[in-house]
Amino acid sequence: MALLNVENLSMVFGGLVAVDGVSFRAEEGKITSVIGPNGAGKTTLFNCITGFYRPTSGKIICRTHGRDFDLTGMAGHHIVRQAGIARTFQNIRLFPAMTVYENMLVAEHGRISALATLNPKRYAHEVAKSRALARSWLERMDLFPYANSRADALPYGIQRRVEIARALCTSPTLLCLDEPAAGLNHTESEGLAKLLLRITKEFNVSILLIEHDMQVVMNISDHIVVLDYGRRIAEGTASEVSMNPDVIKAYLGEDAHAA
């Protein structure tokens, strides 16, 4: 069984079918990308996986540390803490008035159980552990110099990195990134692509990626899922997907092939 198994997932808002019977898998240690034109249902899919929406039908099973979790009925915070799925957002959602270091430490709260706070020795131990973890992610993500500055005072590109680092502080097995390259310039998105490869290879965190920047997607993805109007229209490696006539049609329109 793969790390993440999405089976026949549908999400309906009133009369609008945002996600329509989508199935795919994300393997451990790989970068899986979800692409598709605007409004294809990519972010809705993400919100279902990370517990912000309760899917209308279908199943999402996550195998973390040898245990299977059914994400469809799980509370959002349990998905992060137990199933180990962390996410970032399309429009950066940092905690603006807090420093970068404090942003990282919010993960601490999820890790330390309420009971542990009653035991001062264990609490101190847990806190020290989380701080060391936060510190090491800051170092690995080259964010150490910004540790004590307010999150909203940083340039956009760095805020993106802070958001990824913050998600990594929850020690996830799967990291879901919603358009991490949006708003970055060419050099920055190349840097991001390298960073994502490092995260999977070096730090052993699998990635599920939504991205519009095809340069990034095609270069680093192990597996690509293409959505259009809420349905999966293609799936495969970068070269397979880019040759698929349905994909080309979805992106460029009906007559593009003939032209």
């Binding site: 990370t50 517990g51 912000f52 959002g76 915070h77 992060v80 803490r81 962390a86 996410r87 957002f89 959602r93 940092l94 905690f95 603006p96 008035a97 807090m98 404090e102 430490l105 919010v106 993960a107 601490e108 709260h109 999820g110 890790r111 330390i112 706070t117 806190v127 913050r166 998600a167 929850t170």
Partner: peptide, 20 residues
Amino acid sequence: TFGLAFEAIREDEIAAQAMG
């Protein structure tokens, strides 16, 4: 850690939930 959690909720509820 409660203070951190409280402030995280104040700053951004959605992101706070995403942080567990």
